[in-house]
Simulated scan of single mutants.
Amino acid sequence: MQKFLISHIEKCTGCARCLLVCSALKEGQFIPFKSRVHFVNFARDGFSVPNICFHCEEPACQEACPVEAISRDEWGAVVVDDDTCTGCDECVDACPYGMIDLNGHGLAYKCDLCSGDPECVKVCQPQAIVYAVLDEEASHNRIFLMKQQFKEGMAKQKRLSFAHALKGMYG
């Protein structure tokens, strides 16, 4: 059975360990805006929401890629082939959840589930992010977050403004 990253928003403390380990592993730097995991911190309301790639059943990013640089790997992750990607930005525009972006080299990047062993899960002590087969509760949480992110427009504009704010802080 396929495993998924599952976000339990009620457990997230906003510690950002998931962002830090992801950016360190994938980019070699502890800089949250370079992470493949994102979260929005609603400090005034006292909660945070981890935003993770859903590795959609029918990925819009994959469908939009004109050079077929996006595929599904053996763990079920929707992944980008850096050697094929041209940096056209079509996948970024197509993702309704804002979970794919272009890196400093102009190539698309996103969560790749760390080859079936996600590091973000290992460091999430409150278990706000888990990697598991979907049960009824996890399936409900996943669908809720997908709808919420789509409805609230967490896609490109809000996430990019958040990333630019962080970039200004961290260079």
Rank of each mutant, 00 (worst) to 15 (best):
R36Y: 15
R36V: 15
R36G: 14
R36F: 14
R36W: 10
R36P: 04
V37D: 01
V37Q: 05
H38L: 13
H38C: 05
H38V: 10
H38F: 14
H38I: 06
F39Y: 13
V40E: 06
V40H: 07
N41R: 09
F42I: 04
F42S: 04
F42E: 12
A43G: 03
A43L: 11
A43C: 05
A43T: 06
A43F: 05
R44E: 15
D45F: 14
D45R: 15
G46S: 13
G46T: 14
G46I: 12
G46N: 14
F47I: 01
F47T: 05
S48F: 08
S48M: 08
S48P: 01
V49K: 04
V49N: 01
P50Y: 02
N51D: 12
N51Y: 06
N51E: 10
N51R: 13
I52W: 01
I52S: 10
I52E: 09
I52T: 13
C53I: 03
C53W: 02
C53R: 04
F54V: 10
H55K: 11
C56K: 10
C56G: 12
C56E: 10
E57P: 07
E57C: 03
E57I: 12
E58H: 10
P59L: 11
P59T: 02
P59A: 04
A60P: 12
A60C: 13
C61P: 03
C61I: 05
Q62G: 07
Q62R: 15
Q62V: 03
Q62K: 15
E63L: 14
E63K: 15
E63W: 08
E63D: 12
A64T: 07
A64H: 09
C65P: 00
C65T: 02
C65D: 04
P66I: 00
P66L: 01
V67I: 11
V67M: 00
V67G: 00
V67L: 00
E68R: 07
E68N: 10
E68S: 12
A69V: 07
A69S: 13
I70W: 02
S71Y: 13
S71G: 14
S71F: 13
S71R: 15
S71P: 03
S71I: 07
R72Q: 09
R72H: 08
R72L: 09
D73Y: 07
D73S: 13
E74Y: 11
W75T: 14
W75G: 04
W75M: 12
G76P: 09
G76R: 09
G76E: 08
A77H: 04
A77S: 09
V78Y: 10
V79Y: 07
V79F: 10
V80G: 05
D81L: 04
D82R: 12
D82A: 14
D82E: 15
D83Q: 13
D83I: 06
D83S: 14
D83K: 09
D83V: 05
D83R: 06
T84M: 09
T84F: 03
C85E: 00
T86G: 01
T86S: 01
T86W: 00
G87P: 07
G87W: 03
